[in-house]
Simulated assay, not measured.
Amino acid sequence: MLNQLSYNWQYGFSHDIYEDLANESKIVTRDNFRRFGLQAFSQAEIESVSVSFDTSRLSRWQSPQTIPVRITYDTRHIGSFEENKTIQLIKERGQWKILWDWENLIDKLSQDRYLETIVEEGRRGSILASDKTALAEDFDSVMIWATPGLLDKLREEELLKLLWELFDHNVAHIAFHQRIVGNSLSDLPIPLGVLYKPVSNELRSFPGITLTSHLGRRYRQSNIVTVGKVLNTSYFECCSYLYTTTTYDGDNGVEYERNSELKGFNGGSLVIKDKEGNVVRIILDIEKRDGKNVQL
């Protein structure tokens, strides 16, 4: 049961967590429970979760019992945070069930509260040739978002092919499809990736696709040095290209060799607010730091 709970928690399958709740914890419908869970992940910009239960004192018979759990959440822009909680289990008709509270997910979270993320983008330093030509640099680009319920299903394959081409075949058709429809709400926009090339008019023609300002990273070829590329080193990213200076690091070439100098960090905050908009908990509060330029 704990293995299944861990899996559902990591992938945001709150509708499946609902099936393992004790009867007294089912105070809302399954659909409302799922919506709140997905909205919380979206508001906190959570992209990856790791869950570790301490089962050293787990009993097959004692009911109720509490199980310590450590959860690490990786956010899209401002780093990670950790929660140390205890999950209470009880037996109902011979099966283990969870006494659930949204504070199990994140401390101080409840059904009448919400999360808010504010981001101040930092820049990764530029790599400059001897004549000061930028071989690699952050620039003003866009994030592509898809709202599942607004997409034209008849043009889905056309859209996925275009995205595949825009990201130079680095993210597969099926990966974008999975991110859009795999575990989503029809009215909740999903970030797909940060472009590192000009936006095409064709992309703008698709219903359900929106663009927001975001820093991207672009390159110019060099016949003298291997400039390299950057990759997400904070969490496994299979189905998107969510470039930020916080989560991406140099993978090879100068990007790798001078990573410590080039590295920047986004600033911003992640807080929990009550329904009146008052802050009840500050989870993350990060100061922005731009990386340094490197001249070859």
Rank of each mutant, 00 (worst) to 15 (best):
S48I: 01
S50A: 13
S50Q: 13
S50W: 00
V51T: 14
V51N: 10
V51R: 01
S52R: 03
S52K: 11
S52D: 12
F53L: 13
F53Q: 12
D54R: 12
D54E: 05
D54I: 06
D54W: 08
T55I: 14
T55V: 14
S56C: 05
S56K: 14
R57H: 15
L58F: 15
R60T: 06
R60H: 04
W61F: 10
Q62V: 12
Q62I: 07
S63L: 08
S63I: 07
P64T: 07
P64N: 07
Q65C: 06
T66M: 06
T66L: 00
I67N: 11
I67Q: 02
I67P: 10
R70Q: 11
R70A: 06
R70C: 01
I71W: 09
I71N: 01
Y73Q: 04
R76Q: 11
I78P: 01
I78E: 06
S80L: 06
F81D: 04
F81A: 08
E83S: 07
E83F: 10
E83A: 05
N84Y: 13
N84F: 12
K85P: 00
K85I: 10
T86L: 07
T86F: 14
I87Q: 13
I87F: 15
I87D: 13
Q88P: 10
L89A: 08
I90T: 15
I90L: 15
E92L: 06
R93S: 09
R93I: 00
Q95V: 01
Q95Y: 12
Q95M: 09
W96G: 05
W96T: 06
K97Q: 14
K97P: 12
I98T: 15
I98Y: 09
L99Y: 02
W100S: 09
D101S: 15
D101E: 14
D101R: 09
D101P: 00
E103P: 07
E103L: 02
E103N: 11
N104Y: 04
N104A: 03
L105P: 02
L105K: 11
I106F: 01
I106Q: 07
K108A: 08
K108D: 08
K108G: 06
L109H: 07
S110N: 14
S110H: 07
S110Q: 12
D112P: 00
R113P: 02
R113F: 00
R113A: 05
Y114G: 11
Y114K: 10
L115I: 01
I118G: 06
V119H: 04
V119F: 06
E120M: 10
E121G: 02
R123I: 05
R123K: 14
R123S: 09
G125Y: 09
S126I: 02
S126A: 13
S126H: 05
L128N: 04
A129T: 04
A129D: 08
S130H: 11
D131M: 03
D131V: 03
D131I: 00
D131E: 09
D131R: 08
K132I: 12
K132N: 09
T133H: 05
T133P: 00
